[in-house]
Design a protein around this nucleic acid. Structure first.
Lengths: 150, 150
DNA sequence: TATTGTTATACTCTATAACTATA
DNA sequence: TATAGTTATAGAGTATAACAATA
C-alpha cells in the first residue's frame, strides 16, 4: 500500500477522540430519540423521569427530587405543576413547608406506559452494543458523573 | 445468602441502568467542566469546537461546519459572527454565496491554547477510566451516534 | 440560621420558517 | 430548483437572586 498511501495525512476530525465531545453528541442523539418516543404521551424526558422516580420513591419532596435528578429547586416548580395539573402526581403536606409527592392512579398507569416506551427506546440503542460493552459504558458513565471539580 | 436477602427489594433508582439517562448526566458533568475550563479564553464549547475544526480543515464553509458539528445553519450565524468579530476567524468568498473559513494568526494561537485546555479537561476524566475502558466508551459512543430513527 | 417552595429573570443551545442572492 | 447565508422567533433546559413561610 506504500505508494498508494496519501502523502499528506488525511484531515482528521479533531473531535473524534474527545470523550466530552462524543458524549455530548451521543447524548443528543439519544435524547432526541427519547423525546420522539415519549411524544405520544405528551410528556418530555424530565417529566417522565420525575414520574418514574416518584413511583420508585413515593413521599419524596420536590427538593429531594431536584437533588436526585440534578434539577434546581426553581426549575422543579413548573415541572411538578404540570404533572399536578395533568393529575399524574399529587402532593400531601409533610411540614408546613414541604409536600410529599406520590402518583395518582393515572400517574401509575402513565409510569407503566413510560417504562414500556423507555424500554423500547433503550433496546434500540442496546442493539448496537455488545451486552458487555453496554455494561462497561454504564460503569464508565457513573465514574464520570462522580467527577466534579478540577 | 438466601435468608439474609431482604424480603422487599431495596428501593432502586429506576434511572440507574438507563443508558440514555446516564449519558445525559455524564455529558452534563463534562460540559460544565469544559465550560469552566474554557472560561478564561472567553470562548464557550461550541466556539472552541469551531476553531479546532476550522484549523484542521481550513476552507470549510459555514454550512459544511454546521453539518459536521450538528449545528443548524441558522445557529451558526451568531457563532461565526462572534469569532469574526473577535478576529479569530476570517472568511474569503468562494462563490457569490459561500465563504471559506480559516483561522487568523490570533485564531491559530487561540486554537493552540484551546487544545491545551481541552487536553487538561479530558485528562481529568480519563483519570477515572482505564485506558481500555476509555477506548471502549469512545467506540460505543460512535455507535450510538450512528443510530438515527426508530 | 437553614430549608421549602416560589417568582422573576437571564442565558445557552436548539428548532423552524421565511427571505435574498446566488448556483 | 437547490443551496448559502441570514433574520426573526420560539422553545427547551439551566442558572441566579430574592422573597415568604416554616423549621
Amino acid at each position: 500500500m506504500a505508494d498508494t498511501a496519501p502523502i499528506e495525512s488525511p484531515v482528521r476530525d479533531p473531535m473524534d477522540n474527545l470523550l466530552g465531545y462524543q458524549l455530548r453528541r451521543a447524548s443528543a442523539v439519544m435524547m432526541a430519540h427519547l423525546a420522539a418516543t415519549l411524544a405520544e404521551t405528551g410528556l418530555r424526558p424530565p417529566e417522565a423521569t420525575i414520574l418514574l422516580v416518584v413511583e420508585a420513591t413515593p413521599g419524596l419532596t420536590q427538593s429531594d427530587l431536584g437533588r436526585l435528578l440534578g434539577i434546581k429547586r426553581a426549575n422543579m416548580v413548573p415541572l411538578v405543576s404540570g404533572l399536578l395539573a395533568a393529575d399524574l402526581v399529587e402532593r400531601t403536606p409533610v411540614d408546613g413547608r414541604s409536600h410529599a409527592l406520590s402518583l395518582t392512579t393515572a400517574g401509575a398507569a402513565m409510569a407503566e406506559r413510560l417504562r414500556r416506551l423507555i424500554d423500547k427506546h433503550e433496546t434500540r440503542f442496546a442493539a448496537v452494543l455488545d451486552p458487555d460493552q453496554r455494561e462497561a459504558v454504564l460503569a464508565a458513565l457513573r465514574s464520570i458523573r462522580e467527577v466534579r471539580e478540577s
